[in-house]
Amino acid sequence: MERIHAINPERIVWCCADFGITVDKLAAENAIPVASLERVLSREDESGLTFKQLSKIAAYFGRGVLFFLEEGSIHFEQVHTPAFRTLANQKPELSAKLKLFIERVEQQRSVFLSLREEMESGDLPRFEHPALVADDIPTAARLARKWLELPPHNSFDSYRLAIEKKGILVFRSNGYSGKWQIASESPIQGFTLYEESCPVIVVRKMRSEARQSFTLMHELGHILLHRTSSIDDESDMLSHQGEERDANAFAGHLLVPDEFLCEISDHARPGNAASFDAWLHPQCKAWGVSAEVILRRLMDARRLSQSQYAAYRAWSKNLPAPDTDQAARTYRHREPKHIFGETFVRAVLDALGERRISLSKASSYLDGLKLNDLNELEKHYAGL
């Protein structure tokens, strides 16, 4: 079997350090003999690796094979974008899989920007900052809601579509195993990759779409108020400090404006925190938010005590975990829309229709859809 000898060992070592793994772990997870890797790294002999082995390493690190054949050392700044470095600095403990996830999101944005520049129609939206005053959160949220042209009743999908229409890509992780899933053990709820002409928001798929709505608007707050990339876990969604406090307040006021609170009767509030969900169910359903978001807004308005809110939090934490068994993927062709959103999928399909990209390219951009599923997706968008 032909072997590759001109491998740059420094690049393998650098990638291991970047991912926080040992050479032994790299070998074990890619079914490569440790001795073979150690010989390459030490330059003891010229045995090299097979193309298949090097391809496994490249795929594991999210790189191309040529990356490991180029001469010279590399630096963090050369490989990772400023937005990626911002997230890595905020959460140094990011897992290797999540780092790859972030890089894939950046790659998808690059695909979208390329398609947007090539398309003849010019219908794909471009982001322009609305005029907001960042130090007046309630007013900023009110203006943002007007900018998004939101009706009184909403869901996660309608919030997402409104944001996408303003030139911001909104991705959501997949609930199925694969490269677009955020691991169940990860605490990350969402992140933002800021870019002047096309920011990206990523929301983790959760059992409750209402919780996703808050994450979505929290990340939008980072874009509109702070104009920066950010990555957030559950503690950030509850933070009362700095930019996270601002993003939380922004999300709360945007999702539940002051005038919405007038629809809630304090006299009807049950004495038992376990009944708060039922009490607020009509509003939660109409506004596409969780009961917790409404309770936090009521607490801000001094209509709910901290002890009542804490009792609700304690009760909700003790709820049984949902059944995680995955259903059959009956509608595989719709998954790219759920993951990448309306704007991205339409850009790919329009480019395919104009013959600017091949079927294989379209498939690779849409989570590896097979030809039959790609045809079904086209029919779905055509209303057939």
Rank of each mutant, 00 (worst) to 15 (best):
A314P: 06
F112D: 03
I57S: 00
L37A: 09
S95H: 05
E29L: 10
S363K: 02
W180R: 05
F214R: 04
P130H: 11
D367G: 01
Q90M: 15
I137G: 06
I188E: 01
P130R: 13
D236V: 09
T324K: 13
N272W: 09
Q241I: 15
Y159E: 04
K317Y: 08
S184M: 12
M206Y: 07
K146V: 11
R334P: 01
H80Q: 07
M1H: 11
D135R: 10
A314S: 14
G190W: 03
S47M: 12
E118Q: 15
S95Q: 01
D45G: 15
T324F: 09
L169H: 01
E117A: 15
R346M: 03
M119V: 08
Q212R: 12
D135H: 13
R355Y: 04
Y331I: 02
R11T: 10
P151S: 14
A35H: 11
V200F: 01
L359A: 07
F112S: 08
G175A: 12
L41T: 12
G190R: 05
P152H: 06
P322D: 01
H338S: 08
A249S: 07
V256D: 00
V133T: 15
I74Q: 03
D325W: 05
I4M: 09
G62D: 05
E292M: 13
T215M: 00
A183W: 11
R63W: 04
P9W: 09
H75C: 01
L374E: 00
I57A: 02
I168D: 00
H80A: 04
D246F: 04
G383A: 07
R39K: 15
H281Q: 14
S305M: 09
H80T: 06
R63H: 05
V200M: 02
F61E: 01
M237V: 06
S213T: 09
S36E: 13
R297D: 13
L352R: 04
Q181W: 10
D373H: 07
F214D: 04
Q212P: 00
E44V: 14
L66R: 13
K370S: 06
C262A: 15
I231Q: 13
H240D: 14
I223K: 02
A301E: 10
S177N: 15
Q108D: 10
V65P: 00
A278L: 14
D300F: 13
A96T: 09
R109M: 11
K166F: 02
D373M: 01
A134M: 10
A17Q: 14
A140W: 02
D367K: 03
N154P: 00
L54G: 12
F101Y: 10
V111R: 04
R296T: 12
P82E: 06
H281K: 15
D18C: 10
Q212E: 13
